[in-house]
Write a protein that binds this DNA or RNA. Structure first.
Lengths: 161, 161
DNA sequence: ATTTAGTTGTTCCATTTGGAACAACATGCG
DNA sequence: CGCATGTTGTTCCAAATGGAACAACTAAAT
């Protein structure tokens, strides 16, 4: 077996959590990556869904009817990415679409029972990964974290850019 | 001007922060996106750097010498992505590379003064964006958040996957 | 009514991305 | 030594991604 580490230099790769110029942002991004990427890879492998597609399912499982534009706003993703996902999820039977009679430009999207079933499976992957990554925190820390995160997220949602 | 909202239905798109099945993970990812994507777009527009490239600069501005593999571990990105970034940053003169005399497989990377200057500029973009997104929190909340995030990040760093 | 401006969803196209396979090198074991 | 296994960095290739332009539609102003 090849040697794992050169004996002289085994730098502690986590010291960057302290030395970085934007500590909160770095830690948030690090945790997001630690949660999302492995779950994302598993979901892609097991169900063939790409990110924009389960973003669509998640959004529509929490709101009765949304336009593609709404989903783009919720997820901060480009409209064309969502548009593509809509077509694939329509083809899969995971959602339905009806033109808005009141506004010919937009179409209202709705999740189907099949889509909801798929969303349940996907949620389990993400919830599991959340537990693994945040498992080192106490119940009290989890609660405090959730509260502050919510306040910050609500503030971030008011930013246009 | 076209109408902004249909009078009947203006759903509160932030209610998903509460109803989602994995609240902490969702809020963390939402905040990460709110911080990183706009900063990423600005950095690309102003300096032509893509994500893996400034990940490389950030990593090397906080550690004297790293292998490409180290950077991949720090950033949780595929090795080939880092490999490409190394070549571009070498061509730009932002880093230098010497083969490790003790191990012919790996090469030790180091940031140049030019690379450090570029990293300073990039950091400002991310720090600014961090302030904008987290600006709604009190000083005490910021401190508590940073503490819990660090603990969670250190735990996440121990996970192999 | 015509013009002007804004919005929605879509297609086009170039770039970015990451999995898989690969060559080069390192180490352990018979 | 010769073989098996692991690691590093790279290339190949198919897929995902997102900016820009576009057509269809809506609404307001003149």
């Amino acid at each position: 077996m090849a040697k794992e580490k050169p004996a002289e230099a085994a730098p502690d790769l986590t010291q960057i959590f302290d030395s970085i110029e934007y500590p909160e942002a770095y830690r948030i991004t690090y945790l997001a990556n630690a949660i999302v990427f492995p779950a994302y890879a598993d979901i892609k492998r097991d169900f063939g869904l790409v990110r924009a597609e389960y973003i669509l399912l998640v959004s529509l499982s929490h709101f009765d009817r949304l336009t593609a534009q709404d989903v783009a706003k919720i997820s901060r993703r480009p409209r064309n990415t969502i548009s593509r996902a809509v077509h694939r999820m329509l083809a899969e039977g995971f959602l339905s679409r009806v033109s808005d009679p009141g506004d010919g430009r937009q179409a209202l999207l709705q999740i189907t029972p099949e889509g909801r079933k798929m969303h349940t499976k996907i949620s389990a992957y993400l919830a599991d990964r959340q537990e693994r990554v945040l498992g080192g925190l106490s119940a009290e820390e989890r609660k405090t974290l959730a509260t502050i995160l919510k306040k910050a997220a609500l503030h971030a949602a008011t930013l246009d850019t």
